[in-house]
């Protein structure tokens, strides 16, 4: 009955050192969407993700996968981890193998696939992530961007339905970040549910189709990016800022350069189109041409 693929209800988690990381957090994630989870450092994003994968068990509350509560028994955990993959922020924490192919094939082999299927799958994902030329390289020879792609491939090769990316573009150069985003776009088209944590409000605004804001271990705001990001006080409260697209749009309206009713643009391209189509400058330019 539920179209939610992952649900978390009132979960609380306290680390052994007494830090309360999650504080009655409730979150429902719809299948097939692109979800951004935003929050300041230490807001509880990474802790939450470890719950979605069953690595941490909530002190109170419940995690549901496809409407069924996760039982922390071996079988149930394997089922969850098979379907929900996490790409960790620091690839060095994820790559343990000496060679790239071995690392990518680790997950598929753990799923109990036979060698040939596991290898075929690994090679396929390595092609998708454009790392097939690295397959026999040792992981310590790779650049940060390459390591990142290998760690993504290692998760994709397990063919999970939900993929969690913890700060996928952090520390990457713009071109590599762009490549990762293109990969995410392809995955989304394949129907995967993507969850991304980020501090990059501009990225979250244009990429996501649903956004959660987290503060002190609870959800303090949620909705479509157009709903969430037009609330500066909420963003400020979470240690975030307004995306530049929205700021420019607001400024254009305030300066009477575009009409009040102009829809809030989704990204850079929409904003530029808006400027081209409605601004006085365009009319003036066109008039000059006609003249």
């Amino acid at each position: 009955m539920s179209q939610y693929i992952i649900e978390a209800y009132e979960i609380e988690y306290t680390y052994p050192d007494g830090t309360k990381a999650l504080n009655g957090l409730t979150m429902q994630i719809e299948e097939g969407r692109k979800i951004a989870v935003l929050g300041a450092n230490g807001a509880g994003k990474s802790t939450l993700f470890l719950h979605f994968n069953g690595i941490l068990r909530p002190g109170r509350g419940q995690i549901l996968f496809r409407g069924r509560a996760v039982h922390y028994r071996q079988h149930s955990l394997l089922e969850l981890r098979k379907n929900v993959g996490i790409v960790f922020q620091d690839p060095d924490n994820q790559l343990f193998s000496a060679s790239v192919l071995q690392d990518v094939a680790f997950g598929p082999l753990n799923l109990g696939l036979d060698r040939d299927t596991a290898l075929a799958r690994s090679r396929q994902t390595m092609r998708e992530t454009e790392i097939e030329t690295l397959q026999n390289k040792p992981t310590h020879f790779l650049s940060y961007g390459q390591k990142k792609r290998v760690s993504i491939a290692g998760v994709l090769a397990m063919e999970p339905q939900v993929i969690i990316f913890d700060e996928p573009t952090a520390c990457l150069d713009p071109r590599m970040a762009q490549k990762i985003l293109e990969l995410l776009e392809r995955l989304s088209k394949q129907g995967k549910t993507l969850i991304m944590s980020t501090h990059d409000v501009d990225l979250a605004y244009s990429w996501a189709d649903y956004v959660f804001l987290i503060k002190n271990g609870t959800v303090v705001g949620k909705g479509s990016p157009q709903q969430v990001f037009i609330r500066p006080e909420l963003l400020h409260n979470c240690g975030l800022t307004t995306p530049w697209v929205i700021e420019v749009h607001r400024e254009l309206i305030n300066s009477n350069l575009i009409v009040d009713s102009a829809p809030v643009p989704k990204d850079r391209k929409e904003l530029f189109n808006l400027i081209r189509n409605t601004s006085i400058g365009t009319t003036g330019y066109k008039a000059a041409q006609n003249y």
Partner: peptide, 16 residues
């Protein structure tokens, strides 16, 4: 270890 477990590690690193 967390990241190994998240990829269904069950005590075998599988050599290829």
């Amino acid at each position: 270890y967390d990241s190994l477990v998240s990829r269904c590690y069950s005590g075998d690193l599988h050599h290829l």
